[in-house]
């Protein structure tokens, strides 16, 4: 283990480490903490310059309630959910199929096609923007939730394929060979043999894609202009314009947008990190 375990060091060093840990964390999360404090204080505090001290009164419920009452925050949150969940299901399902094709079959196009998915995944969004708008206009789904889902699902299929293919490469290939010799059909092998084995990868991808899509801002601004279909990230930005100088409400709305991915991260932490760090350990 590196660095040297703290237990093998002097008591003083251990004590210093145990104090340094919370201090460092406090400094690291200071911006977040500050915005949380702002979101629970009354507007009058900010006006008199009490920004970082103890709030004169705790108004958590009032402030967050006001965000819901005064704005379409609830609608925005629902829209985000309607965008993130179908995207997640669609791209992960498609990637199971493409990943299987690229990992299990030995054909000449396997590697070039895999690289096509990988390369597409790293492309800057701006080079896709105008043609995607054009496609959406022609399919009459611009400004709608399904229009955004279509693009996201297609784009995320690239990342999911990269992930799935690498995961499936690690499966014992003899297992599939022997099933083929027994005369099991290709679809049956996929469904009954391979899918149960890649469940952890599916879980990791679901968490990741959900978070990515929840936090998407660019595609939502490009593909959706109608206020009633906006997701929360764009909604929060709009609120920022509406609540000029009402920082307690802006911060409450911002934190609201951050809660679901944070919650998702905490309950699915293992899968989330496994997904993000894929490839960081092998090679």
């Amino acid at each position: 283990m590196f660095p040297k375990p703290i237990k093998t060091r002097s008591r003083a060093a251990q004590l210093t480490y145990k104090i340094a840990l919370p201090v460092a964390l406090l400094l690291w999360l200071l911006p977040l903490l500050a915005i949380f404090m702002t979101s629970i204080r009354p507007a009058s505090d900010i006006a008199v310059g009490n920004v970082f001290g103890i709030p004169s009164s705790f108004q958590m419920l009032q402030n967050y309630g006001e965000v819901f009452a005064k704005t379409d925050a609830l609608r925005y949150l629902l829209n985000t959910l309607l965008i993130a969940v179908p995207t997640m299901l669609l791209s992960v399902a498609l990637a199971c199929l493409t990943g299987y094709a690229l990992a299990i079959y030995k054909f000449r196009w396997a590697l070039p096609l895999f690289f096509l998915f990988v390369a597409g995944n790293f492309v800057p969004f701006q080079i896709l923007m105008l043609p995607v708008v054009d496609i959406s206009v022609r399919m009459e789904i611009i400004n709608t939730v399904p229009g955004l889902v279509m693009f996201h699902a297609a784009f995320q299929t690239g990342f999911c394929t990269l992930f799935m293919r690498n995961f499936m490469k690690g499966l014992p290939f003899e297992l599939i060979e022997s099933a083929r010799l027994e005369g099991v059909g290709e679809l049956q092998i996929f469904w009954h043999l391979v899918l149960p084995l890649v469940k952890p990868a599916i879980a990791a991808l679901c968490v990741l894609i959900f978070t990515f899509i929840w936090n998407d801002f660019f595609w939502a601004t490009v593909l959706i202009q109608e206020d009633s279909n906006l997701p929360i990230t764009v909604g929060v930005r709009t609120l920022n314009g509406e609540f000029v100088q009402q920082w307690h409400l802006v911060s409450a709305a911002s934190l609201l947008a951050a809660v679901p991915p944070v919650f998702m991260f905490f309950i699915m932490q293992k899968h989330f990190i496994a997904g993000l760090t894929l490839g960081a350990t092998k090679g």
Binding site: P31, A34, I35, T211, V236, R237, S254, V262
Partner: peptide
């Protein structure tokens, strides 16, 4: 884990 929009707003503030 937090959206970049929220990070942007936090820092703008």
């Amino acid at each position: 884990v937090i959206s970049q929009v929220v990070v942007g707003l936090i820092f703008a503030w």
